[in-house]
């Protein structure tokens, strides 16, 4: 498929495309954020992507988790995501990582960038702990019509667990809609592509987005 990237090449050029095609990334979580982030990375032609998620598709996921449909309820998100993503772009190497993100999780040695698409602080902190120094972590989170995206470099930036010290998971399900999840996932991918190109826009700088009034602001950390 010679011309599959022709439209994005018009925008970011061959040099950036080559960087994307040799990038190795981990997408942690293939739910509201991760299902869209992984899909956009695969469509753009990222060279190799590892995925990790121990969840199963549930009916409340279907409002925003764009890789899944009704017949998938009860099935492994990880296996479904790998299958769907390979069908979208067979030139991308897609590797599922079984298991959970816990204290035993270890990052494959060739991962350059980690996309934190997780849905709880504990898993985020455990993911961060597994990342070696110098590796980049792009974090995002959302709630209602609010969301944030932030890039950190392990060993050079503050740790996410320091930034979020004291933050606790709210009781019960977090309000999340498909539009907000998709917007934050898109912003996250924009930052991931910029980072692959060596020009992150959110390194130590948290982008805070309110769709409630279409407002953005930045929080330096």
């Amino acid at each position: 498929m010679e011309n599959r990237y022709s439209r994005q090449l018009l925008h970011w050029g061959q040099e950036k495309q080559q960087k994307i095609e040799t990038a190795v990334m981990l997408v942690a979580g293939v739910g509201g954020l991760g299902a869209t982030v992984a899909q956009l990375l695969v469509r753009a032609g990222v060279g190799k992507i590892y995925l990790v998620d121990d969840g199963f598709v549930d009916a409340p996921d279907l409002n925003r988790q764009l890789l899944y449909s009704e017949e998938d309820i009860g099935s492994s998100k990880l296996m479904l995501a790998c299958d769907r993503l390979r069908r979208i772009n067979s030139s991308v190497e897609i590797n599922p990582l079984s298991g959970s993100i816990d204290s035993d999780f270890s990052l494959p040695a060739d991962v350059q960038i980690v996309a934190d698409c997780l849905d709880n602080y504990l898993s985020r902190f455990q993911l961060e702990a597994a990342i070696p120094d110098e590796t980049y972590l792009v974090h995002a989170g959302l709630q209602g019509e609010e969301g944030q995206v932030l890039t950190l470099q392990k060993g050079r930036s503050q740790l996410l667990r320091q930034f979020y010290a004291g933050a606790e998971q709210p009781d019960g399900p977090i309000p999340v809609t498909g539009d907000t999840a998709t917007v934050i996932a898109g912003l996250m991918c924009n930052e991931l592509f910029a980072l692959i190109d060596g020009q992150p826009k959110l390194l130590n700088r948290c982008l805070v987005v309110s769709l409630s009034d279409f407002h953005i602001s930045f929080l330096d950390i």
Binding site: G29, G31, G32, L33, G34, D116, C117, L118, D119, N120, Y121, A140, G141, L142, Q143, G144, E146, G147, Q148, Y164, A167, Q169, P170, I174, P175, V176, C206, V208, L219
Partner: peptide, 10 residues
């Protein structure tokens, strides 16, 4: 001094 209630979900 910054006050920030982060979004916890994903």
């Amino acid at each position: 001094v910054a006050f920030f209630p982060p979004g916890a979900g994903g």
